[in-house]
C-alpha cells in the first residue's frame, strides 16, 4: 500500500491550485522515494514536473510503485475541503481504484476522510535531458508574477532576454510596447528579494504570455522563482518546495517560421 502524511497540508493544496488549469488528468507516480508527476497540457506546449520527496513527509510508505491516475479538477475539489492548517494524509491500496485523503485539524478534534475515484491514464513521458543552461536567473516570484501579468495586458508574447546586466521582458501589441529590465541585485537585506543572474552566454527567446501567466499560479509555493534559458530550448520555470522538492514548468518557445 501507499501512505503519505504531510504535516503542511497547505503545500498540496497550493500545488493543485498551480497545475489544475494547465493539466486535466495525470498519473501521480508513487515510489519509495516520493511522489513524482509529469504531464503536458493538451496542446503539448507546456509541461508540469512535480517532485515531492519521501523525506518531506512526516510518514511515508510505498510498498510497490503505483501510478495513481487522477483528474486534477476533482482532486482540487477534494483538497479545497481541507483547512489550510490541516495535516493531509494520502492513502491508496496496491490494487485499489480509489485514493483516500484524510484531513486532520491541527488540534486533532476533526478528522475527515474523502475517497476519490482513480482513473486509468496512458501518459506520455518526455525524456528531459540534464542541460547546462546558457542563463539562469533567480528572482522574487511575486515580481515575476507581476511582470507577466502586466505584460499580458499589452501583448500576447514576451521576449525574455538575459545578459550579464540582468533579465528583460518585452512585449508589444495594438496599443503600444513595454520593456521591463530587472538588474542583478544582491545587495538587498532579505535573500528572497534578490535577483541573481548566472550567465554563460546572452540569450533571448519568445514565449506565449498566456502560459507564463498560468505558471505564476505557483507563486504561493516559494518566495523565489528560477528561470533557466538556452537558445532553442524550452524555458524552465522552477518553484522550489521547501524540504520536499520542486514544481517545474517547461514552455516551448516560439520558433522562426
Amino acid at each position: 500500500m501507499f501512505e503519505g502524511r504531510l504535516l503542511q497540508g497547505s503545500l498540496l493544496k497550493k500545488v493543485l491550485e498551480a497545475i489544475k488549469d494547465l493539466v486535466t488528468d495525470t498519473n501521480f507516480d508513487c515510489s519509495e522515494t516520493g511522489i513524482a508527476l509529469q504531464a503536458m497540457d493538451s496542446s503539448h506546449v507546456a509541461l508540469v514536473s512535480l517532485l515531492l520527496k519521501d523525506t518531506g513527509f512526516d510518514h511515508f510508505r510505498c510498498d510497490r510503485n503505483l501510478a495513481l491516475g487522477i483528474n486534477l479538477q476533482n482532486m482540487s475539489k477534494m483538497l479545497k475541503c481541507a483547512g489550510n492548517d490541516d495535516i493531509i494524509t494520502l492513502k491508496a491500496e496496491d490494487e485499489g481504484d480509489t485514493i483516500t485523503f484524510m484531513f486532520e485539524s491541527p488540534n486533532q478534534d476533526k478528522i475527515s476522510d474523502f475517497e476519490m475515484k482513480l482513473m486509468d491514464i496512458d501518459s506520455e513521458h518526455l525524456g528531459i535531458p540534464d542541460t547546462d543552461y546558457q542563463a539562469i536567473v533567480t528572482m522574487p516570484s511575486a515580481e515575476f508574477q507581476r511582470i507577466v501579468r502586466d505584460l499580458s495586458s499589452i501583448g500576447d508574447t514576451a521576449v525574455i532576454g538575459v545578459t550579464k546586466e540582468g533579465i528583460s521582458f518585452s512585449t508589444g501589441g495594438d496599443i503600444g510596447k513595454a520593456n521591463i529590465v530587472c538588474r542583478q541585485n544582491t545587495n538587498v537585506d532579505k535573500e528572497e528579494d534578490q535577483t541573481t543572474v548566472e550567465i554563460h552566454e546572452p540569450v533571448s527567446l519568445t514565449f506565449a504570455l498566456r502560459y507564463l501567466n498560468s505558471f505564476t499560479k505557483a507563486t504561493a509555493l516559494s518566495p523565489q522563482v528560477t528561470l533557466s534559458l538556452s537558445k532553442e530550448l524550452p524555458i524552465v520555470v522552477e518553484y522550489k518546495i521547501e524540504k520536499m522538492g520542486f514544481l517545474r514548468f517547461y514552455l516551448a518557445p516560439k520558433i522562426e517560421e
Binding site: 503539448h44 506546449v45 507546456a46 525524456g127 528531459i128 524550452p234 516551448a252
Partner: peptide, 14 residues
C-alpha cells in the same frame, strides 16, 4: 513573432 513550438520537438517521448 514566429510559430508556437511544441515540446515533443525538443524532448523525446519515452
Amino acid at each position: 513573432k514566429g510559430a508556437q513550438g511544441r515540446l515533443d520537438t525538443f524532448f523525446k517521448i519515452t
